[in-house]
Computed example of a mutant assay.
Amino acid sequence: MTHLEERLAERGLKLLKKEAINGSHAGRIYRIEAVDEENQKANLVYKEYETDRNNELHLYLKYSDLIKQFNKVVTVWDSRPKAILMHDLNSPLKKDFELRSGSDKRNLIERILDRLAVLHSLSVGKNANGLPTHETTSDWHEWCVDQMNRLCEQNHWTKTEWIKTINNAYEQLDLKNFQQQCPRVITHGDPHLENIFLKDGQIWLIDWEWAALSSPLRDITILCQDLYDTRLIQFVKESYQKVLHNNDFHIPSEEYQRDFNYFYIDHTTMMLAWEIEKYLQEYTSEEKIKEIIEFKIREINRVTNELGVS
């Protein structure tokens, strides 16, 4: 009997089917079908962690009372192989997001913001010893420039101005030394639309590996990375401050705006590097990567200019 079968048996479940979910995950993930002692079927996801990639498990063990309302985890195993079992939430929101109407997109974004605001407001002032503290560094800047240089070596259509735009933003804003203005809260750390699901009328978050103490704007600007419409990004920026206010989490406007803008540039740079990596690994077409780069470079330039730096 395998580890999975033994663990399911502990919960009165018998494995019927198992299918690997492929992708760049922090471990091995399987979609499974099981049946209980009353012959009721359950669709679940089982995730085994890599030895050095189990920060998510630590969060579930230590802060389960706080985050259990945001995920559908059934149980966790702290013995090797460390793993979690969760309900299958079907498809992430990213799968059909671009097919939705403008009003539907805004409604969905508002629901996501409502959930993130609850997480952030509940964790204000919480004792979260053991969670890492997120700090802005030069890491994403350096990785993105390296990725851009790799791209230049392989493609004639790349533009040297792209690197200049990124360098200008980091140098002029001294972004690697940025000190967040907002209170530190527990942040999910990776709430892009691949990690957000709508199930049973509720928004759920998976993959808490990068959870850390940081500004709530850390999460919001990562969410924006799946949005390729400046109007929607502005909608997120304006809406979230109102949502926080409705949750009695009051942040002065100047501090809110500054955190949003600085985190947004840093995370846009991070996502640029990641999107280039997907292109280099042939997961993204040439036409698509051109669109992505052009949009994100325009966004970095736009926000830098808004901050008064040319």
Rank of each mutant, 00 (worst) to 15 (best):
T165Y: 04
N54C: 13
L131T: 04
Y279W: 11
E291D: 13
P191A: 00
Y170G: 06
I297F: 01
S91F: 07
W140C: 07
E50T: 08
D96E: 10
V118M: 08
L61K: 14
P81S: 00
A117R: 08
E142H: 04
E238W: 08
T136V: 15
R100K: 15
C152H: 14
I293N: 10
V73C: 12
V243A: 11
I293P: 09
T187P: 00
E282I: 03
E194I: 04
L131V: 04
G189T: 02
I293E: 08
L227A: 04
N55P: 00
L113G: 08
K237N: 13
K278G: 02
H141S: 05
G201W: 05
L15Q: 04
D259L: 00
I293Y: 09
K17W: 06
A9L: 13
I163Q: 13
A273M: 10
L93M: 05
H141G: 06
H134W: 14
F295S: 09
A9T: 10
V303R: 06
F178N: 07
L193R: 00
N55H: 14
K72T: 12
A117W: 02
G102Y: 12
K126G: 04
T187I: 00
E33Y: 12
H3W: 09
W157N: 08
I203L: 06
K14G: 08
E10C: 11
K14N: 08
N71E: 07
Y46T: 02
N129F: 11
R11L: 15
D78Q: 13
P252A: 06
I109L: 15
L227P: 05
V145G: 02
S138Y: 03
L44C: 06
L8M: 11
K95A: 02
